[in-house]
Amino acid sequence: MSELRTARLLLRRWRESDLEPWAAMMADPEVREHLGEPLAREQSDAVVAHMRADFDRRGFGWWALESRESGEFLGRAGLDVVDAGMPFAGVDVGWRLARSAWGHGYATEAGLACLDFGFQTLGLPEIIATTTLANVRSQAVMRRIGMVRDPAADFEDPSVPEGPLRRCVLYRSPRPVPGTIAS
């Protein structure tokens, strides 16, 4: 599936025209607050190339996030297979938005669409989400989309150097039982 649609959002494959606004996001220290140092243009372009290759190989991954009303690039959202070497396995849901898109409910809307795709289309038994301990905004989105924190699974990210970004939390969403309404 190449795209998902919600009431306000289009989650679609990446275009060349996304590279510039994505690079601006990745260079923004506020967007990168819980991710690490801002990225140079070459680094952000390499991230997009990697996301495209993963999507082509698996048939799902990180979609570019666009406003259906204006066509504006808002960021990314999607599902990703957890990297080897992490203290857990599975498929991770996530989002990353430009600052101009913060506070409009886009992460929640995109997150719900991704969960639905993961459970209904991919048939996943569970989807997880992770973020730094200090990223309370993303944790609030995780709760809004029905995920529950698993404190026993909180972890130190081995791919991150020692410091405040290393301590992370893990949220879980099991596949809904058919005929029930997810909270």
Rank of each mutant, 00 (worst) to 15 (best):
Q139F: 00
N135S: 08
R8K: 02
E72Y: 02
P178D: 11
V93M: 12
L112Q: 09
R172P: 02
C168Q: 09
E33K: 12
R12D: 11
W102G: 02
I128A: 13
L115I: 02
L65A: 00
S44I: 11
G146C: 12
D80W: 09
A23L: 08
G90P: 06
L65K: 03
E126R: 14
H104G: 02
W62A: 02
F55M: 11
V169M: 06
Y171T: 00
F55T: 01
M51H: 13
E3S: 12
L133H: 13
P174Q: 05
F117R: 09
D92Q: 11
L133M: 13
G118T: 01
M86I: 00
L122W: 12
E16G: 10
R52G: 03
L133R: 15
V81D: 06
V91M: 00
L79F: 12
F119I: 12
R32D: 04
D150C: 08
Q120M: 01
R32Y: 04
C168I: 02
G146W: 05
P164K: 13
R52F: 02
Y106G: 02
P178K: 10
V136A: 15
P174E: 01
Q139D: 03
T6E: 03
S138A: 14
G71T: 07
W95R: 00
F117E: 02
A98L: 07
R76W: 09
A7F: 07
A153F: 07
I181N: 06
L74A: 04
D45E: 15
D154M: 05
E30R: 15
V160M: 07
V141R: 08
R99V: 14
R41M: 00
L9C: 14
P38E: 09
R143Y: 05
L165Q: 01
G94M: 10
A7Y: 08
T132H: 07
F117K: 12
R96G: 15
S67T: 10
Q120K: 14
A107S: 04
R68V: 10
L39E: 14
T131P: 04
